[in-house]
């Protein structure tokens, strides 16, 4: 296999691995921009993956599964909202609780319903989101360079992959070009000003948290019904936290979020690719180092050694209306 073919394979795998990160990262973007920290992205994604796989397995429809995944994830988001907005609880603690709740409930219910050690039944056919080919993908496949890029890299993914990338410009538009977006961002920067303008800060934050739920649900559905064929215990494997790292890396901006997720997606694809591979001169590169790179980079960035990441000013602080 030539160098170019390997590169295309690596990039193709990058795209697949970027999608859940990107969806979760954009999810976190809405919540954190509105002033609600969310370290429960992981848990919501896991719950969404489980909901999607269960309903897809029972009904045989990936689309119904997707809606179920979104619903379950939104329910989790609502818990986070009630705890941290209504009861002004600590947002970090609520996030930790949601991660535990999702990890426990998914396996427990999965075992109760399907008795396969926490797995859901294997999904095939319409119960999964299958890839579809672009027009002329087959004919162009043999054309050098263009064929590889068009037929392998761009074509042949499932609908959720394209939706994830499409969500980036939409998020940019919603947050920076609409009144809703301005109010949402203001709730995270200066909630008092939003309140003075006669807008309900807590309602804005609830809306943001629910959007987070929707996007996490899609990310979860992609994991269990798109990328794999069914739910497996702990299948998010820390992706929610990498997404959080990407969000900080992107300094809470939508388009940089895409780049950060592509970078971190590439690193995890590279990690899989390099398993046991020997490089000239350097020798065997420890896979663990590549896997840890997103976290190390984020720590370095946060410390201000490469630029400075400053989050929304009112993030993490419950809003108390003056009376």
């Amino acid at each position: 296999m030539g160098f170019f073919d390997s590169l295309i394979l690596l990039l193709d795998s990058t795209v697949r691995l970027t999608v859940p990160l990107l969806l979760a990262c954009l999810a976190g973007l809405y919540s954190e921009r509105a002033g609600i920290f969310d370290i429960g992205l992981e848990g919501k994604m896991l719950a969404g993956a489980f909901g999607a796989a269960v309903v897809a397995a029972l009904t045989g429809s990936a689309w119904l599964g997707l809606f179920a995944g979104i619903g379950v994830s939104m329910a989790m988001a609502l818990i986070h909202g009630v705890a941290s907005i209504t009861f002004r609880g600590n947002q970090i603690i609520s996030g930790v609780a949601i991660n535990f709740l999702a990890a426990g409930l998914t396996t427990l219910l999965g075992q109760t319903w399907f008795k396969q050690g926490g797995r859901t039944p294997q999904l095939n056919g319409d119960a999964r989101f299958n890839g579809f080919d672009f027009p002329f993908a087959d004919q162009l496949a043999d054309v050098p360079v263009i064929g590889g890029i068009y037929s392998e890299l761009l074509s042949g993914h499932n609908i959720l992959v394209y939706a994830a990338f499409f969500a980036v410009p939409i998020t940019y538009f919603v947050l920076f070009r609409t009144r809703f977006g301005l109010r949402l961002r203001a709730s995270g920067e200066n909630p008092k000003a939003v309140d003075t303008a006669g807008v309900n800060v807590n309602m804005m934050r609830f809306k943001a948290v629910l959007i987070t739920g929707i996007l996490c649900g899609i990310a979860g559905a992609y994991l269990s019904t798109g990328m794999s064929s069914g739910f497996v215990k702990d299948m998010t494997a820390g992706r929610g936290f990498i997404a959080l790292a990407a969000l900080i890396f992107a300094k809470w901006m939508p388009v940089p979020a895409l780049y950060a997720c592509l970078l971190f997606g590439f690193l995890s694809a590279l990690g899989n690719f390099m398993q046991g591979a020997e490089l000239p001169i350097i020798g065997e590169v420890p896979v663990q180092l590549i896997q840890a790179l997103p976290y190390i980079l984020t720590v370095v960035l946060l410390a201000g050694f490469i630029g400075k990441a400053v989050g929304p000013k009112a993030g993490g602080i419950p809003y108390v209306k003056e009376r």
């Binding site: 818990i79 603690i93 930790v96 709740l101």
Partner: peptide
Amino acid sequence: ALVILFTGAM
């Protein structure tokens, strides 16, 4: 999770 949620966050 429920203990953390109710004694901590809620």
